[in-house]
Design a protein around this nucleic acid. Structure first.
Lengths: 350, 350
DNA sequence: AATTTTTCCGTTACCGTGCACGGAAACGAA
DNA sequence: TTCGTTTCCGTGCACGGTAACGGAAAAATT
């Protein structure tokens, strides 16, 4: 194998007695080649293990291609803001290969804006699309179009089982809930736990927190069958209500020493707890938003379970780039990325 | 900015009234260009934001360069084995850019083998070297030679303060000890803790466990000033002695409920603990060796603090590759990578 | 047999950079 | 002035692959 005189199409042309034009036709399955010539070329390619020089190929093609990233528009200390550095890194990475990485964002609460963002992406005729599935049904419609247009796509953050994606980069959702419970109950005999949830009134949004809650509840019932689980609902759009609701909740359930929340808004709860230092709660939440990290530093949150949206989106972009440029699919299709446990002593290194 | 007619050296040549040969000389800081021409070319480059086409560049160069990775030879379930996947990934990555990534390993207990490995690396005339500093003095000698030969090098795992490295990818060592103590004492009133250490008799090896132990002890004395800290030494090369030593240690210090170890060999301890289930110890160790992970699964280890040698070595290789190919230095010089907290419920995703 | 059509293939001009070669101009020394 | 040196720069080929163009040969039609 180690006769490393990198063979070229010129070599193949010489060995087959054909011209490099014909070899090129064979390599790209273009028409206009006799069966005999085709077979001859293929044999030499097999025998010598020809691998095209991608630099030369890309140079000759000399066209700019684009990889689109479709995701919710981030504001302030939002979850999606965490993905931003990954997109920037992805742009850098793509640029090395002549790939333009273009972000297309939408309002995650406005399905119309999602639809038009999808159209915008299609109009780009991208070489690949990276996206988290937010609106479930619309996403399925969109990815069906992508498949029809033969455009590869990669899910990140969470995924749908549409069986057509090139790869997935994200957390194992259920297990993250399980992990959450195990941290919350570490070294304790858990008697009572509070779950704080967000009132949803949306049209079929893909909601990972449901699956996460299942993992949580399973852990609790496996390890502490007698533990009481109480739920309370808040609405993050009406922040003034929250304190009252929580005060009522804790008053009704005075035994609660542990609190969990399955979305990224745990900071809403610690705002309340900070004002009521008499409540010494063990608190576990998700995602390293700036506000959450602050609460962690202050000791109001015991641990955060974090994923790294930046790493995920970068992985998605680089997978699509390598697929577009080198034609190689990612080694693994489903890439469950680590669930990082953040405490006040290691958080700053993430 | 968006006048995206990708400009080329030919354009620059035209605009400056020079030839592409001269433009090329300017771009590569080669001699034989008058100050005036140099300035003219640079101005146009600045103004138009010229970026070279790397496909064309690599195609034209058409030469194989090598990035060397110098590290201890790994055996069985060794720490260094964990780096292996990162090297493979690095090879893949490098291949995309016509860079050959070559591993050169040595016996970490044999300074002579290290010296000859260094010579081997130098003989390769590499475009870059990635290495963890094992033998401190010898490493300084080696990196001095690299600097003299103008070969960039990147430390990973740990680093020396030689002020000449291109980048560092590794854990914040001291903080990892601090974190270790915080996990070990979580929710407990810590009265007594055992530290298990390895007898060293080596010639000036760079030993991160010392710094780590400092972090640990600082945390304990800050949070539990009255806590007693006992040390015991084992020799991993004489495994038959270990059980006896530990039995003696626990007999002498019956109050010990928590155990820490600052190298990757915590599995040596859990082997003993498994045979003595009456000792219910909280145990925290380092690094996700297969044997450690097994102990974690069995519940013999509470948590492992892990770094990701594979990610570190891959980061080192890709940094060197990008430096060699694109001439761009890494964004940050000192890259302190996350200290991952592994429990039995999240370990498998690392 | 003469023609058109189809099939097949070689030629050639790129793509953007790198670099060796050699020549012109400027400079210095005699 | 003449001749050698040095400085500076343009020319042209190479790198490996792509694809348009057009022509020769084979097949089909008249």
């Amino acid at each position: 194998m180690e006769n490393k005189q990198k063979i070229t199409i010129k070599d193949i042309a010489r060995l087959t007695g054909l011209s490099k034009g014909t070899v090129d036709r064979v390599l790209h399955n273009r028409e206009g080649v006799s069966k005999k010539s085709y077979a001859k070329v293929m044999k030499v390619i097999e025998d010598l293990g020809y691998e095209p020089n991608i630099y030369a190929s890309l140079l000759a093609q000399n066209k700019e291609r684009v990889v689109a990233v479709l995701l919710p528009r981030s504001k302030d200390g939002d979850f999606w803001e965490l993905a931003e550095p990954g997109i920037v890194r992805g742009m850098d990475f793509g640029r090395n290969f002549g790939i333009k990485v273009q972000k297309v964002d939408y309002d995650q609460y406005d399905i119309e804006s999602f639809r038009s963002a999808c159209d915008e992406v299609l109009a780009l005729e991208p070489a690949g699309v990276a996206l988290p599935p937010m609106f479930k049904n619309e996403t399925l419609v969109f990815t069906a179009k992508l498949r029809a247009a033969n455009i590869p796509y990669v899910y990140f953050d969470s995924k749908l089982e549409d069986n057509g994606y090139l790869a997935y980069y994200g957390m194992p959702i259920y297990q993250s809930g399980y992990l959450c419970a195990s941290i919350l109950t570490d070294e304790m005999d858990m008697k009572e736990v509070g779950i704080i949830r967000i009132q949803r009134d949306k049209h079929g949004q893909s909601d990972p927190t449901i699956n996460r809650r299942e993992g949580f509840i399973d852990y609790i019932s496996e390890h502490f069958p007698k533990c009481r689980i109480s739920n309370v609902f808040i609405n993050p759009n009406k922040p003034r209500e929250i304190d009252g609701i929580l005060a009522g909740f804790f008053a009704e359930n005075p035994g609660i020493q542990s609190v969990a929340m399955f979305n990224s808004r745990i900071y809403l709860i610690t705002r309340f707890l900070e004002k009521h230092p008499e409540k010494k709660c063990r608190v576990v939440g998700f995602d390293n938003l700036a506000a959450n990290l602050l609460a962690l530093k202050k000791g109001l949150v015991t641990s955060l379970i974090a994923q790294r949206p930046d790493v995920q989106v970068f992985s998605a972009i680089s997978a699509l780039t390598e697929y577009a440029v080198f034609g190689k699919a990612p080694a693994k299709r489903d890439n469950f990325m680590p669930m990082d446990i953040l405490t006040r002593y290691n958080a700053e290194y993430y």
